[in-house]
Design a protein around this nucleic acid. Structure first.
Lengths: 282, 282
DNA sequence: AGGAGCGATACCCGTCCGGTATCGCCGTCC
DNA sequence: GGACGGCGATACCGGACGGGTATCGCTCCT
């Protein structure tokens, strides 16, 4: 199977429409039909059920969709990492570290300092991304290491090393009745009708349904809380540098958050190893 | 990047010789040279150092070799798993479980029984393989689940669930002086000049250097021990059904062996999930 | 200096990918 | 119910590219 065929199949499987998929791929529809047909012939199975009203995935097609995405990620990662390795000699960034924007700020700073102090440390690019995107960046090679937060992020498929475990706090507007309490229970803050939890975008950019306001980054979040339009439950480290008008109240019964450093398995890059070593001895 | 190019590159990187690589690929040498050249041009970097005496990998080439192997595994896995999924409806094996030959016999039997008793259980194919090969089978899709043994096997890159933790025992010929001891220390059995530890084949089929005899499977191993030509340190479960003439002596200071069930991350197959569930509630 | 080994280049051919035109099928709408 | 429109498959053509043979250029060895 060629990656071209996999790309074609994924496009059709996602659009469930040959015409739109072809458009997205920048080719005409007939060659796309032929390519999928050939794929099905060689695999000896139907991948798509052509109904009169669009297309549907067969069981085998669903399997291929999942596997093909993983395979295409791996191919992309190969290309990106090779390109990066090629630049390494020229002094440009040798490693890319992905971290969730607005999280682990202090830890990240200490980590970068500690690693930079090592002899022979490589240049580290830090990519700040939205929640849950770090794993994607690692999979497709845009990053070489990432800071993940269990249980929010899925660490499946990566090597990890635990860095930090912490409780969570509720971030509330300063004047809120609960803000003077020594601690609150999770149920007390999740169900507040006047202060709903905000809705974060899904990986595809759309927002889940619900009552809370839509937020895209940390700035929007703190601003909304300060305005008394939302509240949030975040790891303890998120209370450092809290802006004026916000209060943090511990939530002892919220799940503890574990920050881990993660990297693709079998990564033999010395730079990644160095970063991991620096992180674990912090 | 097309998988064809990756396959070509891996062949050259492994052979370090364009002619032999071309032969292995079943094509002539010039198209291979051109393909690699094109890859290098598009990546904007040299992958291979052409010396007058053969070829050597550049740093970027080494990165691509590692990543390309992973990517090709993923593509192969996509193809194999799709083919298998296509057969699922026809009643043929829906899941393939890989286990090291001669290990975990009892556990494996109990697991298969427990799963088969579940309603809607799929047909399970068991593939017995050489030591350390299970991970490979999982990576390239020849298997969907595997039993691995830490610390021998590398579980990096898979989801796992611990099933069993056990100590190790030394397998000795019945008449050996140490065989009557209640227990022995690891150092006492690893350094015996008269009973060297056997050498197992590496994944590529070659054997490491050393004094011990070469073994390829469990039968050879037990036979050699019975002949008084070798000894072995194996997990406790390996003592069940021990043949005549062999004795097992506990080795308390040997590392404990953890048997885990492993599967590719993000595997959503219900059959795999059922097997894992059956295994964890054993 | 001559020759052998090895990769690169030149050139040709066949295949296969991609494009346009068109068909066949099935809903839908007037 | 017939005409229309949407959608995927088929037919056919042109061009790009992969693969083959022949040969060159370089280097090392004898």
């Amino acid at each position: 199977m060629e990656t071209r065929e996999l790309r074609y199949f994924v496009a059709v499987a996602e659009e469930l429409h040959f015409g739109r998929a072809a458009q997205r791929l920048g080719i005409a529809q007939p060659p796309l039909s032929r390519a999928i047909g050939g794929l099905e012939r060689r695999l000896g199975t139907l991948l798509l059920e052509r109904g009169s009203r669009g297309v549907a995935l067969t069981a085998a097609g669903a399997v291929l969709l999942r596997e093909a995405r993983a395979a295409l990620d791996a191919v992309e990662a190969a290309e990106r990492r090779t390109r990066r390795a090629a630049l390494a000699g020229t002094g440009r960034p040798a490693v890319v570290l992905a971290a969730k924007a607005g999280a682990s700020g202090e830890l990240l700073a200490k980590l970068l300092d500690a690693y930079a102090a090592e002899p022979g440390a490589a240049a580290v690019d830090v990519v700040l991304c939205g929640p849950g995107e770090q794993a994607r960046l690692l999979s497709d090679g845009r990053a070489d290491v990432a800071l993940l937060h269990r249980p929010f992020d899925d660490t499946a498929g990566f090597d990890t090393e635990v860095l930090l475990s912490e409780g969570q706090v509720a971030i509330l507007p300063a004047g809120h009745p609960l803000s003077t309490r020594p601690h609150v229970r999770l149920a007390e803050v999740t169900g507040l009708p006047d202060l709903p939890l905000p809705r974060w975008p899904r990986p595809d950019g759309s927002f889940p349904d619900g009552p809370g306001p839509q937020v895209r980054d940390h700035t929007q979040l703190t601003q909304l809380i300060a305005l008394g339009r939302a509240c949030a439950v975040v790891p303890e480290s998120g209370r450092t540098g809290l802006r004026e008008g916000l209060t943090a109240v511990p939530v002892p019964d919220a799940p503890r958050v574990t920050t881990v450093i993660a990297w693709p398995p079998h990564s033999r890059s010395t730079a990644v190893a160095g970063l991991v070593r620096a992180a674990t001895v912090l």
